[in-house]
Amino acid sequence: MEHVLKINGQEHRVDVDPDQPLLWAIRDAVGLTGTKYGCGVAQCGACTVHLNGVPVRSCQTFVEDAVGAEITTIEGIGDKVATAVQEAWADLDVPQCGYCQSGQIMSAAALLSETPKPTDADIDSAMSGNLCRCATYQRIRGAIHEAAKRLEA
C-alpha cells in the first residue's frame, strides 16, 4: 500500500504495510540509515525520531500513524538546538561505537527544546529510555549541559 511520508521536509512515497513500524520504512524503504534498530520493542531508544518535534520510538510507531506528520531523523535535524547538541557531542568525544548516538542526540535535542537548562535529574529522566551499551552516559550528561550553556550564550 502506498503512503506518503514527510521526512526531513521531503515527501517520500513508500509502498509498505500500514502497520509496518516507521523504523523499517525509514531505513529500508526510504534508505535513511542513521536511525538504528536495537530492540524493536521501545526499550533502547536507538530508533528515536521526532514526530512533529516530539521524540518517538520509530520501532513502535506505525507508518499509518506517521502519515501527515513532520518526521525528522538524525540526517535532518539541523536547527540551532540540535546543532549545538551535535557539536557538544563531538567536542566532548561522546561516541564510542556510536550506534546508539543518533537516538541519544534526538532525545537530547528534544529535551533541550523543552527544558533549556536541564538538571542532572532532568537529563536522567529524559534520557533513561536511551540505552548505551558502551555506557557513554557521563559524557552524554556533560554534552547536554555544554550544549545548554552554549545555547544560552
Binding site: T35, I74, E75, Q86, W89, A90, D91, D93, V94, G98
Partner: peptide, 12 residues
C-alpha cells in the same frame, strides 16, 4: 579528539 567522532553524531 577521535577522528571518527563527527560521523557518529550525524548518522553518517
Amino acid at each position: 579528539k577521535r577522528y571518527d567522532r563527527v560521523g557518529k553524531t550525524n548518522g553518517a
